[in-house]
């Protein structure tokens, strides 16, 4: 294993860790506004680190084809970074317009009584 392979493996592992946090956060958080925080953002960060790691691994052999593939993966990363906030905002906007009230600590204590 070369040094590039080790760095790529570490980045993929970090990305999978972020993905794990996103999946568990979607399950654990109480309402849909707070579920958006792990869903939209931890997944974006996981994609960023994992795809960057794969692009680094592809640069092991410097031929035209692998460089173009790495560029395409970078294109996916840039695309995700532009579209992820837009998708998150579309979902939260739909929730606000549908009149869903956000979960707060006060409503939780009212529910306990």
């Amino acid at each position: 294993m070369s040094l590039l392979d080790i760095i790529a493996t570490a980045m993929i592992a970090l990305g999978l860790f972020f993905f794990l946090g996103g999946a568990i956060g979607i399950l654990r958080f109480p309402d849909f506004y707070s579920r958006l925080h792990p869903a939209g953002k931890l997944d974006t960060m996981g994609q960023f680190t994992a795809l960057s790691g794969i692009a680094l691994y592809l640069l092991n052999d410097l031929s035209l084809g692998s460089v173009l593939t790495a560029l395409k993966i970078l294109l996916i990363v840039v695309f995700v970074f532009i579209t992820s906030p837009t998708a998150t905002h579309a979902i939260v906007d739909a929730g606000v317009r549908a009149g869903m009230t956000p979960w707060t600590k006060e409503t939780r204590e009212e529910g306990r009584r």
């Binding site: 849909f32 579920r35 958006l36 869903a39 997944d43 994609q47 993966i73 995700v80 992820s84 739909a94």
Partner: peptide, 19 residues
Amino acid sequence: LDRIIGVNAIGSKTTTLLI
């Protein structure tokens, strides 16, 4: 909207899984 969030999360994982 919770279902949409779940589908979105699955889609972002699928992008990585395909590569």
